[in-house]
Structures are given as C-alpha cells and as structure tokens.
Design a protein around this nucleic acid. Structure first.
Length: 551
RNA sequence: GGGCCCGUAGCCUAGCUAGGAUAAGGCGGCAGCCUCCUAAGCUGCAGAUCGCGGGUUCGAAUCCCGCCGGGCCCGCCA
C-alpha cells in the first residue's frame, strides 16, 4: 500500500487536475490552484471557476472524504477509509512499509575521493548525500550499484606513491599515514625540481603498466582505501564496487573513446590528443592525452561513462561544485558521441571558519577526528544514565553517527556550509538525536503497555483528534516522499520529512496520554504510537541512522 | 575578464524545480513545565524591508533583467 500516493492519484483521477496545480498545503490534505489559472481564460472569479469545476468532478474510490472551495482554492481532504487503511498498512507491512516497485537500475557514484589521505568533512558531505540516495533508491524498488571511482592514475595518487617510497609509511591508520607523506613530498617538491621529474617518470611507467610501477601503486592505494573504507563503515556508508580508473586504460575503453571522437571528426592530433570545445561554448581545448603519452582524468572518465552506458540504464554522480566545468564538458562530449551523460548532484563546499580545506596543505578536519569527538560528546551526555558500559558505548556511537549524517543530509546540496564544532556537537532539537529520542520514546510507551498487559492495538477514526489526524497524514506520506527524492535527487527533503514526524509525535505525546484507563482510547492511541515507531524506524534506516529503542 | 552557485530575524536552516491563502522551524535571549508513558522533551514572549533596485503578473521569497556581497571554476591537476 502506498497511502498518500493512492489518495493523490485518486484526486487526479477524479478531477483531471494536472500535477502542476496540486500541492500539499497547511489548509488541506491536498490543494489545487487550478481555478486561478482558468479564471484568467474564462474571465471569471477564481471562486466561481472552482465552484463550477467541483460540479464536474467524478469521485470514485474511497479516500476522498470531502472537498471544499475557499478563496478560489480547491481543498481536498482524506476520509475515514484513508486513515484506517494507512494505520493498518503500516502495522501490517512493518519493515516493508514505504516500499515501492518503481523498477529499473541505477549506478550511484559517490565519495570517490583521491586515495592520498583520509576522508575529511568535505568528502563526507558527498558520501552522506550519495549513501542516502542509494538507500532511498533501494526502498523505491530500484536496483542500485553504489560505486567508488578510484582515482589511481592521477598526479595526486602518483605523488602519494612517490612520497610513500621516499619516506616510508608509518604504522598508524594507513590513510592518515599516507596523508603525512603526501603533504611532506608536496612541500619538498616546491624546493626540489627532481621530484617532479621522478613523478612524471612514475606516471609514464604506471600508464604503460610496467610491473614494478603497478605494484607500487597497488600497494599504496590499497592501503589508503583500507583506511577510507574503515571510515565509511563507521558512517554506515557502503559501496558495492570500487572501480579503478586504470582499468579503462588497460581494457581498451580509452582507445574506444579516442576512436569514437575521431569518427565524428572531433579529435585533433597535435603533440597531444585534444578536442576543441568552441562548438560547445567553451574557450579552451580539452586535452585527452599528454605529450608524454599519458591520459588525463577526463579521458578515463569518458571511458568510465562509456562503460556505464553499456552496463546500466541510469547513472547518478555526486560531485563537488569544483567539478562543474569539467563535468559539463564531460557531458557535452558524451552527447557528441551519442552516449548518455550522467545525472549529477553537485554540492557546495564545506569550509572551515578560517577558509577552505586542502589535503595537500594538511588543512582539514578528518572524518575520523569528527566522529571521535562527536562520540566523546555523546558519551558525556549518557554517562550518568543507568546503562552498562557496552550499551553506553553503542548508544553514544549511534547518536554520534546519526548527528553527523543528519547535519549533512539535512542541508540542500547547493548551500555552502561552514563547519562549526559547536553545531556538530549539539544534540538538541532539529538533530538526529531528537528523532532517535522520539523513536525511543515511542518504544518506551509500547514496552510499558506490554508490561501492564495492554498489548492490543485498535485504531478508531471516530476517536481521532486533530493532532492525531495530522500525525497519521504525515505517516501516510512516507512513500510519497521517497518518490519525490527519486525524482528530485534531493535527500534533504526526506530528512526534513522525518523531522516533521518526530515533531508532530512529540506534540501528540504531550497532549494525549496513551496509557489510560479507557480501553478504546488506549488501544487507539497505542496503534498510532506503534505506527509512528515503525515509520520513524524505517525512515532513520533510509538516513543511515540507527533507531535506538532506549537512550 | 568570463562561467556556475549561494545571500531568508543576532546565528543556522526550510520553502524557490511546477508563482497564490498568515514566510515555517531551530540555536541564542526572556518567562514557565518533571508526585504523570525517558526534560536529548514541551509551552509562552521577543525577534524578518525574504541582499539591493527594476520588470512580468490580479498576485513574486519563488520567474526575468541589472547591481552589491561571499564561494567555486577557467592547468598537458583532479
């Protein structure tokens, strides 16, 4: 069952009103502004047009309770069957509630940070947006492959490899150790010209696939990734595959890209291989192969997207806004050779109060440090509560990760963020722990009810008050909001939705005591509590946040 | 110099794709609520020329143009 979606479709079917003129509203369960548009053509007042339209509606189905006309708006309200079905569907379907069967398949490429150091707070904005999309796509019934594109052929990687060979890697967490040698060699390269010569030689040898070079790269990059994967695991972020870009140099896809461009007369052979971008509105050429024979990032990325075209029907990339130019060029080139470009979610930078982050300069807050400090802060909060040490650890971890994920997913990607420790370590309203707390609170009520022998649930429309009505309506919109994200690629709207449910439930909690003597009221409210518990838990799951039963 | 993005109360954010009914929340401030299902909660008060100026429209935070402020990009880097 897909509750609010069903109501929405019923309204559309009954009225013939287009999506453009239907929206959620504070004044109604669904409102239409269509009369305003028609009023102009018909030269009548919106109110009159709306009243005429009302006559023409052919209501069928069970969910539309009543329709009202007000100030030209047509307001639709769901009725008894809708609310009963919503609660019953949630209680029956439980973990499966909210699932859709949209079908299809998608590759979501996210994180893809250079293997030259640990993930920092900028990278995890990418990871969290990407992983949340992955989870929501899956819930929508779409087959997803989450991919990390490993940039093993770039200059930065070669620099890290060279640094590791020159100074040796220490015994700490490998991604952090690699950052140390990467920062050091970058600093040394400013003084010592020979480092750049060695770098070029190393890149040429790796591009050619010379065995010892391949071994060096593999070793260092695997270790960097090992550290990155550990951090991602802490954040509940999981990839299905790690795709090494060097693969596309070795498997002929890069050559195929050259041929495809050549066939369309786009490829120019000079000392380099390049494409003039004038026809696409760019001033400068795109170089695809250097004078020394090595390829560039965009070359391998074109090959990767050729591969995506052959292996999947839809592909989404999560990229920092610094990639906008090159990603747009990539898309133009793909279209020019008749390939589908990726759908791209760009996110703006996370900067520090003192300026932007840089791995090379060692100017960043690592995700690991952020996770640890957030954990410590959460631990303080729970320290004097009555839990075992193990439980305290587990709960504080869940709260810390939740806080991090929610802080990042909640903000629209196009919004620049300035990282703020005070905010990151805050566990009060409008945060994940608020939602987790609300979920734990629902669990607590249900536990108490069972202890007292009140296990039965029975939703009663006639007993439902206004707050309860608003709450259940929100619960009914779960799959509606999932579908929105699938279309808009904006997971922030889903975070906001789950937060709304928590707020409305707390409102209900304070107004309506649940465990009361009157059994009808009690069973009715328990049904609402249990349904809310299920929706919050399923929603937190999609946000990659653990739904705690006690905290 | 050119391109893209952001600019909503002291601070942070939602709403902008498909223009409409009182601009919605949080933090901070002030005043309150635990013999009652977890106070990581709740209630009330104060706080906004929706960056500025034009335009389109019956109607603009939302669309268009110009400007101001901030960020990112314009490498044979990624």
């Amino acid at each position: 069952m897909v509750m609010f979606r069903a109501f929405y479709k019923e309204v559309k079917r009954a009225t013939g009103i287009d999506d453009r003129f239907l929206r959620e509203s504070d004044h109604a369960d669904l409102a239409s502004t269509v009369a305003f548009k028609l009023a102009k053509e018909k030269r009548k007042k919106p109110q009159e047009v709306a009243e005429e339209l009302l006559e023409s509606f052919e209501i069928s189905g069970d969910y539309i309770g009543r329709i009202e006309i007000e100030n030209g708006y047509i307001n639709f309200f769901a009725g008894q069957e809708f609310f009963e079905d919503t609660i019953n569907a949630i209680l029956d379907e439980d973990y499966r509630y909210g699932e859709l069967k949209l079908g299809g398949e998608v590759i979501v490429e996210h994180t893809s940070a250079n293997p030259d150091g640990p993930l920092h707070v900028g990278h995890i904005r990418n990871s969290i947006i990407g992983d949340t999309l992955v989870r929501i796509f899956r819930k929508a019934g779409i087959r997803v492959n989450a991919q990390y594109y490993v940039n093993d052929m770039g200059r930065q990687s070669a620099m890290a490899v060279l640094g590791a060979a020159r100074y040796g890697i220490g015994s700490g967490k490998p991604d952090h150790e690699i950052a140390k040698v990467y920062i050091r060699i970058n600093a040394d390269a400013e003084e010592d010209e020979s480092i750049n010569a060695k770098l070029e030689e190393l890149m040429i040898r790796y591009e050619r696939g010379e065995e010892d070079a391949v071994r060096m790269f593999r070793d260092v990059i695997e270790r960097a990734l090992e550290g990155v994967k550990e951090t991602l695991e802490r954040l509940n972020v999981r990839h299905d595959s790690f795709i090494w870009e060097s693969e596309f140099v070795r498997n002929g896809y890069v050559e195929r890209i050259f041929r495809m461009l050549e066939e369309r007369g786009l490829l120019e052979r000079d000392d380099v291989l390049k494409v003039s971008m004038r026809r696409f509105g760019y001033e400068k050429d795109v170089i695809l192969r250097r004078e020394n024979g090595t390829t560039l990032y965009i070359t391998r990325d074109l090959a990767y997207h050729l591969w995506k075209n052959e292996n999947c029907e839809r592909f989404v990339n999560i990229l920092g806004s610094d990639h906008k130019l090159i990603a747009n060029q990539l898309s133009d080139l793909l279209r020019a050779i008749n390939l589908k470009p990726p759908e791209i979610v760009f996110f703006e930078f996370v900067s520090l109060p003192e300026g932007s982050m840089s791995t090379r300069k060692g100017k960043f807050i690592s995700a690991d440090e952020l996770i640890e400090r957030t954990y410590q802060e959460a631990r303080v909060l729970i320290e004097d509560r009555d839990f075992s040490d193990e439980d305290k650890e587990r709960i504080a971890r869940a709260v810390a990760i939740g806080a991090l994920r929610f802080d990042f997913v909640r903000v629209s990607p196009e919004k620049p963020m300035t990282f703020d420790w005070k905010k990151a370590l805050d566990f009060e309203r409008q945060t994940a722990s608020y939602i987790q707390y609300t979920h734990a609170r629902a669990c607590s009520i249900l536990r108490k009810a069972v202890e007292m022998g009140y296990a039965d649930l029975d939703f009663r429309y006639d007993l439902m008050d206004e707050t309860e009505r608003e709450l259940v309506l929100l619960l009914s919109k779960f799959s509606f909001n999932i579908e929105k994200v699938v279309k808009s690629l904006k997971p922030s709207t889903f975070a906001e939705y789950i937060l709304d449910i928590a707020e409305k439930f707390n409102d209900f909690y304070h107004k309506n005591p649940v465990i009361v003597n009157d059994s009808d009221t009690r069973m009715h409210r328990l049904a609402i509590v249990d349904a809310t518990r299920i929706v919050l838990r399923n929603g937190l799951e999609l946000l990659g946040i653990e739904a705690l039963e006690r905290m």
